[in-house]
C-alpha cells in the first residue's frame, strides 16, 4: 500500500515525459511532412513564374503571384494595423496609466476581439465590402486582415510598453515634455525592439490566415496590379490547388506550403532575436 504512491508518481512521470515528447514530435512531423512534399516541387521555375492556363487546370507555371500577393497583403495589413494600434498602445500606457479599472476593461475587450474567429472577420469584411460597393480586391483584403490583427498587435505592444519603467515616464514629464512627446520619443524608442517583435508576430498571423481573406481578396492568375484588383495569396493558393485532381497543380499547392512554412520559421526566428535584443537593452530601475 505504501508503495502505491511511488508507483503512481512513476506512472505519471512517464506519461508526462511522453506527452512532452509527443508535442515536439508532432512539430517535427508537421514541418517534415510538408517539406517532404513541398521541397521536391520547389524549383526556380516554381517561384519565378505565374500559373499558366488557369491556376486550377494549367500544368505549367509557378506561384510567384501568390508569394508577391501575400507579401503585399500582409505588409499592407500590418502597416494599417500598426498605424491604428501604436497610438492605442501608447495611449493606454502613457495617458491612462493611472486608471487601472479602465485599462483592465480595455485589455478585456482586446482579448475578446483576439478570440473572435477569423472566419467571422471574413464574413464581416465581406459585408462591409458589399456595403461600400467594393469588389473582391487587395484593398478589401487588407482592411479585413488588419481588423483581425489589430487586437494582436495592440496587445503585443501593450505588453512591451507596460514593462517600460514608471520612473522613465515621470522623469520625462517632469522635464517638461508633453505626454505625446513622451509617448513617441521615450516609450516608442525604449520599446522599439519589442514593437518590432509584435509587428513580426502580427505579420506572421496576417500571412498565414486563409479564412478572413477567402471572400475578400478573390484569387487570380496574374501578378497583383493595384489596390482595387483581386490578388492571389499563399494560403488560398494551397487551399484551392490542393483539391485539384491534377498532380502538377497539387505540386503548386505543396510548393506554396513549403514557402509558407519557411516564411513562418524565419519570422519566428527573427521575432525571437528582437525579443532577446529588447530584454537585453531594457532599462532597469
Amino acid at each position: 500500500m505504501r508503495k502505491m504512491k511511488y508507483i503512481e508518481e512513476r506512472f505519471f512521470r512517464v506519461l508526462m515525459f511522453l506527452s512532452t515528447c509527443l508535442i515536439v514530435l508532432v512539430l517535427f512531423l508537421i514541418v517534415f511532412s510538408v517539406l517532404y512534399k513541398g521541397l521536391p516541387a520547389l524549383s526556380w521555375e516554381m517561384i519565378s513564374q505565374v500559373p499558366k492556363g488557369g491556376f486550377y487546370f494549367g500544368k505549367e507555371g509557378g506561384i510567384l503571384n501568390a508569394i508577391v500577393g501575400s507579401l503585399y497583403l500582409s505588409v499592407g495589413a500590418t502597416f494599417l494595423a500598426f498605424v491604428i494600434g501604436l497610438p492605442v498602445a501608447l495611449f493606454m500606457n502613457v495617458y491612462l496609466v493611472k486608471h487601472k479599472k479602465l485599462l483592465n476593461t480595455i485589455r478585456f475587450f482586446l482579448d475578446l476581439l483576439w478570440g473572435v474567429p477569423s472566419i467571422v472577420y471574413g464574413a464581416f469584411g465581406f459585408a462591409i465590402m458589399l456595403f461600400f460597393g467594393l469588389r473582391t480586391s487587395l484593398l478589401a483584403g487588407i482592411i479585413t486582415v488588419s481588423l483581425f490583427i489589430i487586437p494582436i498587435i495592440i496587445r503585443g505592444m501593450d505588453e512591451v510598453f507596460k514593462s517600460v519603467p514608471r520612473g522613465l515616464l515621470e522623469s520625462s514629464l517632469s522635464l517638461g515634455s508633453t505626454r505625446s512627446e513622451t509617448s513617441y520619443r521615450v516609450f516608442f524608442k525604449q520599446g522599439i525592439a519589442g514593437v518590432i517583435t509584435a509587428l513580426l508576430l502580427s505579420f506572421g498571423r496576417a500571412i498565414g490566415d486563409a479564412a478572413s481573406i477567402l471572400f475578400t481578396t478573390g484569387f487570380t492568375d496574374h501578378m497583383p496590379s493595384g489596390l482595387s484588383q483581386p490578388v492571389a495569396t499563399l494560403p488560398l493558393s494551397i487551399f484551392f490547388q490542393l483539391s485539384s485532381p491534377i498532380p502538377e497543380v497539387q505540386d503548386r499547392a505543396y510548393a506554396s506550403a513549403a514557402v509558407l512554412v519557411f516564411i513562418v520559421l524565419i519570422i519566428s526566428l527573427l521575432s525571437r532575436m528582437f525579443s532577446n535584443v529588447y530584454h537585453k537593452n531594457k532599462i532597469q530601475f
Binding site: L27, I30, G208, I238
Partner: peptide, 28 residues
C-alpha cells in the same frame, strides 16, 4: 534546458498557419 527547447517549439506550433495544419492533416 528542456524549457529552453520547448519555448521555441510552442511558439512555432502557435505560429504555423492553419492551412498548413490542414495540409498535414490530409497528408498524415
Amino acid at each position: 534546458y528542456v524549457l529552453r527547447i520547448m519555448h521555441p517549439v510552442i511558439d512555432i506550433l502557435a505560429g504555423i498557419p492553419s492551412v498548413i495544419y490542414g495540409v498535414w492533416g490530409i497528408l498524415v
